[in-house]
């Protein structure tokens, strides 16, 4: 029943340093730190010297990734408690930036979704952002009916955290909303739900 293979599903890449860029802004969460650290062999010291890092540790705090990011010798390295609290700093950096700035997003889909949405407000087209997915596949899901967002969804079917309807989580993804689409699954036969499975871990 899960509709798969939908083409709006975002495709993420592997982070690589843009050595031409005159300024780099890295926005990462959780295990995304490992994607940033993995650029080390390819990135000279000078690259890190013109790089700002904003990091949200989340559930990865015990791993101590932030200390390793700090050791990269970046221009600035900031830890924020949540994605939402990191956004004002990201916006301040983008607001002052000139052309020749490269944005990197690494970690969970919600982080990358938020990062792309904000970048768009500053005139960065999404194709020019470098991304790498790490960590949880949990999804932000927007209920198409009430428009509420349900965070950290790991199952194919989930009750909307706002209106309570049972939603089928589709692969249809909106960059603007930064979320997958959830559509009521049992409207035609109330209470008849397919098997709920954990599919986005």
């Amino acid at each position: 029943m899960l509709v798969s293979g939908i083409k709006s599903r975002p495709v993420y890449g592997t982070l690589a340093p843009n050595e031409q860029a005159r300024l780099n802004i890295v926005f990462a969460d959780g295990e995304g730190a490992l994607a940033v650290l993995a650029m080390k062999p390819a990135a000279p010291t000078a690259f890190w010297a013109r790089t700002h890092v904003i990091y949200v540790a989340g559930g990865s705090a015990p791993q101590g990734h932030f200390a390793k990011l700090q050791a990269l010798g970046t221009h600035s390295c900031h830890e924020a408690p949540t994605i939402a609290s990191a956004l004002p700093r990201l916006k301040a950096l983008l607001g002052a930036a000139r052309m020749g700035t490269q944005l990197y997003l690494a970690g969970t889909e919600p982080l990358m979704g938020e990062g792309m949405r904000v970048a768009g407000e500053y005139g960065i087209r999404h194709q020019s952002i470098r991304t790498e997915h790490r960590g949880s596949l949990a999804r932000r899901v927007q209920c198409v009916h009430c428009k509420g967002i349900t965070e950290s969804v790991t199952t194919n079917i989930v009750p909307c955290a706002h209106c309570g309807l049972h939603l089928l989580v589709r692969d249809h993804y909106s960059r603007r909303v930064g979320a997958f689409q959830g559509v009521n699954i049992d409207a035609e036969a109330p209470g008849q739900l397919p098997k709920v499975e954990e599919v986005f871990k």
Partner: peptide
């Protein structure tokens, strides 16, 4: 000229 351009140019 190019290094002076604002983001989104």
């Amino acid at each position: 000229l190019l290094v002076m351009q604002p983001l989104g140019t």
